[in-house]
Amino acid sequence: MDTHTLPALLNADDPMLRLALAAHLARYKGQSRAHTASDLNVYLRWCLERDVMPLQAKRAHVELYLRWLQEIRHLRPSTVSRRLSVLAAFYRTCVIDQILDHSPAEFVRRPHVPLESPTLGLSHLQFEAILTAGRDSANRNDFALVAMLGLLGLRVFEATGTDVQALGEARGHRVLRVHGKGDKTALVPLPPAVGRAIDRAIEDRAAGPILLDRRGQRMDRHAATRRLKALARSANVTTARMHPHVLRHTFVTTMLDAGVDLRDVQVAARHADPRTTMRYDRARNNLDRHPNYILAAFMASAT
């Protein structure tokens, strides 16, 4: 296991805690491991500041940690729920490995997560403006960045982590091989506009990252966020928080607004659970799309 994915420890001389963390993180790969380690780090730092030993924590400590996330850090319910899930999974592994007799997180109630995602996707006109700004930008990576996030629906780590060698063809389509969450690989077809944007970014390079920063190095999520904020300013697009996930959200909401079937959108977004896709559907309560009308039209000859 890469040592950089191990969370910060309260006591470097605590072999049991180190073993428990390593055993739990060994269950994950790639970005899932890194994100799990990051969430565990938050809890370990919280414990350090309060002289709490993680392997001796009680349910009350986990409850206090939950309240701290909600009332001091003011995190969104979905973020709080995710971090509690990560912590519960860690303690469950400790029970499986007989490090603990029971999990202190077992009976902690998770916060209610609203059905609709709090992240607002761009409107159709705002999305067009961002695409135009990227296409007209002097930085040849901008259009590829916007296209990969907004027209392919890639997560930011997928877009920035993809190399030129991932381009290819499959069943008559030009495709991009994407290494996604859960160490899963997907073949994503490239519409012509996205293909042109990527070709513009890579020029005549045959290897290396598709997206580069201003120093010619692989673009990271921080550089991607800065470029998107700059494009939003140049396009006069105002949004509370402009970040890469806004474009992935826009990818899903625009598909749903265009009438693409929910199942097809789920497949395109590579969501494991259709409920995740439904959270993005801002028109879910639009009665114009109610399935009763489709059924009535189908049975019109009998009615």
Rank of each mutant, 00 (worst) to 15 (best):
100 L>M: 03
100 L>C: 01
101 D>M: 09
102 H>I: 08
102 H>A: 13
103 S>F: 01
104 P>L: 03
104 P>Q: 05
106 E>K: 08
106 E>R: 01
106 E>L: 09
106 E>P: 00
107 F>A: 09
108 V>Y: 00
108 V>A: 00
108 V>T: 00
108 V>G: 02
109 R>Y: 00
109 R>Q: 01
110 R>M: 02
110 R>E: 01
110 R>S: 04
111 P>N: 10
111 P>G: 06
111 P>S: 10
111 P>L: 05
112 H>L: 09
112 H>T: 14
113 V>E: 06
113 V>H: 02
114 P>A: 12
114 P>L: 11
114 P>V: 11
115 L>F: 12
115 L>D: 15
115 L>V: 13
115 L>G: 15
115 L>P: 05
115 L>R: 15
116 E>N: 11
116 E>Q: 12
116 E>I: 14
116 E>R: 13
116 E>D: 13
117 S>V: 07
117 S>G: 13
118 P>T: 08
118 P>E: 06
118 P>Y: 03
119 T>H: 04
119 T>M: 07
119 T>K: 02
119 T>F: 02
119 T>G: 04
119 T>W: 02
120 L>N: 11
120 L>R: 14
121 G>M: 05
122 L>C: 02
122 L>R: 01
122 L>S: 00
122 L>N: 03
123 S>G: 11
123 S>K: 06
124 H>N: 08
124 H>L: 10
125 L>V: 15
126 Q>E: 15
127 F>D: 15
127 F>N: 15
128 E>G: 05
129 A>Q: 09
129 A>R: 08
130 I>M: 12
130 I>E: 08
131 L>R: 07
132 T>P: 00
132 T>L: 11
132 T>Q: 13
132 T>A: 09
133 A>V: 06
133 A>Q: 01
133 A>S: 06
133 A>I: 06
134 G>C: 07
135 R>N: 13
136 D>K: 13
137 S>H: 13
138 A>V: 09
138 A>C: 07
138 A>Y: 08
139 N>D: 13
139 N>W: 14
139 N>M: 08
141 N>K: 10
141 N>G: 05
141 N>F: 10
142 D>Y: 01
142 D>T: 09
143 F>K: 12
144 A>H: 04
145 L>A: 05
145 L>G: 06
147 A>D: 05
147 A>G: 09
147 A>V: 09
148 M>K: 03
149 L>V: 02
150 G>E: 06
150 G>Q: 02
150 G>D: 12
151 L>D: 15
151 L>G: 03
153 G>H: 04
153 G>M: 07
154 L>S: 06
154 L>H: 06
154 L>E: 12
154 L>G: 04
155 R>N: 11
155 R>A: 10
157 F>P: 03
158 E>K: 01
158 E>G: 00
160 T>D: 06
161 G>R: 05
161 G>Q: 10
163 D>S: 12
164 V>H: 13
165 Q>Y: 09
165 Q>N: 07
165 Q>V: 09
166 A>C: 04
167 L>C: 11
168 G>R: 09
168 G>S: 11
169 E>T: 14
169 E>R: 12
169 E>P: 06
169 E>A: 12
170 A>K: 12
170 A>Y: 11
170 A>C: 11
171 R>F: 05
172 G>W: 00
172 G>F: 02
173 H>V: 11
